[in-house]
Design a protein around this nucleic acid. Structure first.
Length: 201
DNA sequence: GCGACGATTTCG
DNA sequence: GAAATCGTCGCT
């Protein structure tokens, strides 16, 4: 797959765009990750789990722009998570990068993830992936498909449909019915499914 | 202005 | 199972 083909895929319908991100590599801060798990979020198109569901705000503004840009958000007072903006402008759809395998810069990734024991856990989870790559507020709004501090590169060959598994999204309170989480079947770096747990009863 | 609540992770 | 920890967004 070429970068041009990837760009076209990201600009198109949400679910193919999400599946097309699997096996792409993402490089930042001296670390490269191969994406193994993603989640699709439809923007204003009736997806109550999307950060753009209630319309444009300062935080989600980049989602309303063109595809191929990074939407980075801060959560739980301590973690960063990253999305790739997809679809047409004003559509505000995006794909959360949930997990990957660190394929380069393992020493650097380990220095940022001191709690981890196994290499497989370095980027196994959306906030862990950002921590391994050193992604934070500074990555907000960066374009991913050309030379820059955050670079997304397509795999040589697209992932065959039979290698992709799908299931409900992790941790969302609403729209549990949509199987919009995609991962590489059998890959050990895919994060565990956790049902949303209310912080207080 | 204020307060409830996360697209989570880690530790006990 | 529960705490840690704070920016965001909608409004008791």
């Amino acid at each position: 797959m070429t970068t041009t083909e990837l760009a076209a895929l990201l600009a198109g319908p949400l679910l193919p765009a999400a599946r097309g991100l699997l096996n792409c590599t993402l490089s930042a801060g001296g670390v490269t990750v191969r994406l193994t798990e993603v989640e699709a979020y439809a923007g204003t198109a009736g997806d109550p789990a999307s950060h753009a569901y209630r319309g444009r705000t300062p935080r989600n503004a980049v989602m309303f722009g063109p595809s191929g840009y990074a939407y980075v958000y801060f959560t739980y007072g301590m973690y960063w998570c990253m999305n790739v903006v997809t679809g047409a402008e004003e559509e505000a759809s995006a794909v959360l990068l949930r997990a990957g395998e660190v394929v380069d810069g393992i020493d650097i990734a380990r220095s940022r993830r001191t709690a981890v024991r196994r290499d497989l856990d370095l980027a196994r989870g959306p906030a862990r992936l950002c921590a391994a790559l050193g992604v934070d507020r500074a990555a907000y709004g960066l374009f991913l498909l050309d030379d820059g501090p955050l670079r997304l590169t397509p795999p040589a060959e697209p992932v065959p449909a039979e290698a992709i598994a799908a299931g409900p999204r992790v941790g969302v309170t609403s729209a549990h019915d949509r199987p919009w989480r995609f991962w590489l079947a059998g890959d050990p770096t895919v994060s565990e499914y956790r049902r949303h747990t209310p912080r207080r009863k």
